[in-house]
Amino acid sequence: MRLLQIPAVVLKISASMKLFTIIVILSLFLLAGCNVHIDPNQPMGMIRIKGSDTIVNAEQMVSEEFMKDYPQVFVAVTGGGSGVGIASLINKNCDIAGASREMSKKEINMAQKRGVNPFEIVVAYDGVAVIVNNNNPVDKLTIDELRKLFIGEITNWKELGGQDVPVVTLSREVSSGTHAYFKEQVIHLGNKLSKEEFSPKTLLLSSSQAIVEEVSNNPGAVGYLGMGYISDRTKPLALSKTGEEYYPPVMKNVLDGTYPLSRPLYFYTDNEPNGVIKLFVDYALSEKGQRAFEDSGFVPMRKNVARKN
């Protein structure tokens, strides 16, 4: 049987010498590249930001502006979900954790056990939008109807006055802060003791963009995501707590709290931020940084509030 042929390895000295020379020259170039002009009076360093997919685009915009103003600070932004950010803050793998939910008691305990002292900063406000396909005639729901959709009690849109199309519920993965928020506010209706779960038929998608894709292709799909992901490819629903007045997820309704699924977005750092991290946090809270959040579809803060755990 001839699965793999092992070629005879012949190393010619001249060839390896050539390779060696090339490597030396290349590494000289690399060293030369590092040797740019460094101004010791300017702040320098590296900031690792990880966490919520909801705000990752806004973080990216802020960090790009920030790196223009402070060229010697390098900011690395990664998404993955609030849980990912918080876990890496606890594991000391990032400097700032972006989160679309509060840290849980369990997480704070775990952090303190590892010598990490989480410090909470509210950076913007967001509404969790519920989106359906553009061809779905339903355009408003009460929170209770929404809950019945996601726990699998309502399985066809005609029960809500829509077409005769089976409901497909879409959720984010369990690492998502929006998942945790939605579970708490909609599935549990804010009741901490509730044991209700998402219907096991709910699809768990790994990004908000995947939810947009599926909803725009599927007339029976319903999903939730941060307001920043609303586009004309899908239809956001107006929601109501009581069934009297319905509010669409727009900036004004989030600001005055009438939209039922409004929430703050957080940065978490280990202890009060200092050095370049403080510089970045202040930048994000400044007018310039807040404009980036606004451009990404979030509600900027009128007053900068920072509170401690």
């Binding site: 849980g83 990912v84 594991n91 775990m110 369990v174 690492s175 790994s206």
Partner: peptide, 16 residues
């Protein structure tokens, strides 16, 4: 849901 997708989807958020 498969075994592999579960590990990949959730490993990032677990505290070691």
């Amino acid at each position: 849901r498969t075994l592999t997708a579960t590990i990949a989807g959730e490993m990032g958020e677990t505290v070691s």
